[in-house]
């Protein structure tokens, strides 16, 4: 069961990463990179590193994406990449 979770997270990280690169809208890119972070959280929990998982959830997904989105807004909204 755990192996299945880990495998699916690995695969979805790679798929989302591809999608992130080819995505034309920058705001979508940021949201997609949050998806990568979410799968990373699952991996960290599966590998018994709850501290790292919490850090990734709070900093990697939460505040850094928000700051990126705010930075994007400073540039003037939905830029095409």
């Amino acid at each position: 069961m755990l192996g299945l979770v880990i495998l699916s997270s690995f695969i979805s990280i790679i798929l989302i990463a591809f999608k992130t690169i080819i995505e034309p809208k920058l705001s979508h890119t940021i949201v997609l990179s949050m998806g990568i972070g979410l799968n990373a959280v699952i991996l960290f929990v599966a590998f018994q590193a709850p501290d790292v998982a919490l850090t990734q959830a709070v900093i990697g997904i939460g505040i850094s994406s928000v700051i990126l989105l705010m930075g994007l807004k400073h540039l003037g909204g939905n830029y095409e990449s």
Partner: peptide, 10 residues
């Protein structure tokens, strides 16, 4: 789990 860094950011 967690600590100052995480709590502060939350």
């Amino acid at each position: 789990v967690g600590g100052g860094f995480q709590g502060g950011v939350i």
